[in-house]
Design a protein around this nucleic acid. Structure first.
Lengths: 157, 157
DNA sequence: ATGGGCCTTGCCATCGTTGGAAGGTCAAGG
DNA sequence: CCTTGACCTTCCAACGATGGCAAGGCCCAT
């Protein structure tokens, strides 16, 4: 089975299959005499696992963990659950952040006449965050200066 | 005012200030005889604008548009509102996607005993998405193959 | 044998941000 | 005057996940 077929069968693009192999997320595929990657149904099965996990928003690093647990018949389901719950938390944090942004903007937009006149509460707020709209900014994007503050969880985005 | 002071005063890191200047988001700062960037209160004002917009999740491209409108005294507030509303929509789409992921995972996690035994509905679903949990996968990450399907809106994040 | 479609590798771009190296400047203290 | 340390400069690389392109090889059908 060629990489193109494996791509269609798994829903993972050929490009990404090669990439996942390169970074070691999946083991190197077999090769034909001509050097073409050769996939079995089993390989496709793995790829579908990866695809599904990506669809659920897991990072490649998390999927790596999940794959190892998947392959390990003596795994503890608690370990799997841990990864899932952490990911849910992560999602919820990001959802909350975005909801706050959306709410703030919605409020500002509601106050904006949106016509030919220049007066605009949106720009006014960007200029001088109003106490009402500002709240704690939540600074998604790290420190204020060059001198780093230590590692943060890798932010996918 | 040195770049470090401007960073502290605006909440934008020195690194990012240089970057924003480099990509043309903000005009080049003045320079001292030694080549140090020199900032005025006005410059810091602009930086704070940028910072606030980033906090609200606007992309650099969007901020560029907002800055131009900000500077243009004859702008139409409708143009500002348009950018804001588009961004809100974008946020809401992403929020919905993430909520769906979180809900699916939550459901799976609830079914997972999370103990020392290996049986795990989470892994089972990743292996073979159940009809209940799968729904329309929403494929946030593009096509199935190399041969592209055209441009999508740049995805930050 | 020729053409089209697939495969290979490799490099570049994205987006926003951080990190680091190598070197110049400035102010304070010996 | 010299050193030290904190700051500044530029340039380069990395992150994560993906798409795109190009040059060349392979395979199959006409």
């Amino acid at each position: 089975m060629n990489i193109g077929d494996a791509a269609k069968a798994s829903g993972v693009s050929a490009k990404m299959i090669r990439y996942y192999e390169q970074i070691g997320l999946i083991p190197p595929a077999g090769r034909t005499h001509a050097g073409y990657r050769d996939y079995t149904e089993k390989d496709v099965h793995v790829l579908r696992f990866v695809r599904r996990a990506r669809d659920l928003g897991f990072s490649v690093a998390e999927i790596d963990g999940l794959l190892q647990l998947w392959r390990n018949r003596r795994r503890r389901s608690a370990d799997v659950k841990r990864i899932a719950l952490d990911h849910i938390e992560d999602l919820q944090r990001r959802i909350a952040d975005m909801q706050e942004m959306a709410a703030t903007l919605q409020q500002l937009a509601t106050c904006c006449s949106g016509d030919d006149r220049p007066d605009c509460p949106i720009l006014a707020d960007l200029e001088q965050p109003s106490a009402a709209a500002a709240k704690e900014p939540k600074r998604r994007r790290g420190a204020v200066d060059d001198r780093g503050v230590g590692k943060r969880k890798a932010q996918r985005g």
